[in-house]
């Protein structure tokens, strides 16, 4: 094996170093840990870099993994900002002491109070609802009312919902714990399990598809998945989505469950000033439009109109709880799911 000599080994070592130097950035930068991965986000960041000259370094990953990483990195963390797709996670980051509050007028003006942390440790950037989607053919919207009504026996073998390991279900149950208490939430979860059309499986889109295929009649899912399906490159998926309609539950009572994807400044941020500039930019009218549109979500900035599709679904009342509760009740929710056998 003549290519295994000292010179070549040295060459490899040099290559490894060269390779790793890619990641060493310049001055005037900001480091972002995020679990959003939309191609349009890159365009947005390019624009920001162009306007400010600040270079944005991005590390993508699952929210939980990123939080764990920041915990492990401690004071010397390279993260300045953390974006996650769930308020519960932002709350966890806050309680673990990973974030710091930001007192900033621009952010206060752009982001309504209920969509940010009570002590301003994190700020929502986009909003989604967890709603009921129903078959236009087989369900009369007058049959639908609240989340609580889903345990009624008229829904026996008709409800489709994904597994409880999914954070959106955990946050939904966490919100119900916050509003109605643990006992009510346990009964509710058990009742939904009784009414399930099939064992939980697949993602949110799979639930919608199962309505079209006749496996069930209503599905619990996030608003943006319907948007994605209506714009899918698979014409069959568009067909499926067109058979479905959105219903915002609990409008007369406690409001529809919403969640945000949001951003927080890390406690040990090294580029604090740049980081706040980026937060401001994300909340601005210019960025909000694209940011929300990328994922068919509602913008947080009240000066930005939701996209045409979202406007067509109409306005809705959301749950009147601070989103921090989603994080506080997460473990409780998880354990209830296991106890009632929601796989």
């Amino acid at each position: 094996m003549k290519y295994l000599n000292k010179r070549n080994i040295l060459l490899i070592v040099v290559l490894v170093f060269a390779f790793s130097s890619i990641v060493i950035g310049a001055e005037g930068e900001v480091n972002l840990y995020t679990n959003r991965h939309y191609d349009t986000d890159k365009l947005l960041l390019d624009k920001f870099e162009e306007q400010t000259g600040i270079q944005v370094n991005v590390l993508k990953g699952g929210s939980d993994e990123l939080i764990e990483k920041i915990i492990r990195e401690g004071e010397s963390t390279s993260a300045d900002l953390l974006i996650t797709a769930d308020a519960g996670r932002l709350h966890r980051a806050k309680t673990k002491g990973l974030l710091q509050p930001v007192e900033n007028e621009t952010l206060f003006n752009n982001i309504p109070k209920n969509l940010r942390d009570t002590e301003n440790y994190w700020f929502g950037l986009t909003v989604r609802g967890r709603v009921i989607v129903y078959s236009k053919d087989r369900v009369d919207p007058s049959e639908l009312s609240t989340y609580g009504d889903l345990t009624d026996e008229k829904w026996e073998d008709r409800i489709l919902v994904r597994s409880s390991s999914n954070i959106y279900n955990q946050s939904l149950l966490a919100s119900l714990i916050a509003i109605h208490g643990e006992e009510w939430a346990t009964e509710w979860a058990a009742g939904v399990v009784d009414n399930m059309a099939r064992k939980p499986q697949g993602n949110d889109r799979a639930q919608a598809t199962a309505i079209a295929s006749g496996e069930g009649d209503i599905a619990i899912m996030n608003t943006y998945y319907l948007g994605k399906m209506l714009n899918s490159s698979n014409p069959e998926e568009v067909k499926v989505a067109k058979q479905l309609e959105i219903f915002f539950p609990s409008q007369e009572t406690t409001g529809t469950h919403i969640n945000v994807s949001g951003i927080g400044l890390t406690k040990y941020a090294k580029n604090k000033e740049n980081a706040i500039k980026l937060m401001e930019y994300f909340s601005s009218v210019e960025a909000q439009e694209m940011f929300a549109k990328a994922n068919y979500e509602y913008p947080v900035n009240p000066n930005v109109e939701p996209s045409e599709l979202l406007s067509s679904w109409g306005e809705f009342e959301s749950q009147d709880i601070n989103l921090s509760k989603l994080g506080e009740n997460n473990t409780k929710a998880y354990m209830i799911f296991n106890r009632v056998g929601w796989k």
Partner: peptide, 24 residues
């Protein structure tokens, strides 16, 4: 790769997974 990669470092596997995980 998902957990330990440095900044701005994506591989085919991580990106394919991210898209698929986002139901894309």
């Amino acid at each position: 790769t998902l957990i330990l990669r440095p900044f701005n470092f994506n591989t085919l596997a991580t990106r394919a997974f991210e898209y698929a995980n986002d139901e894309m």
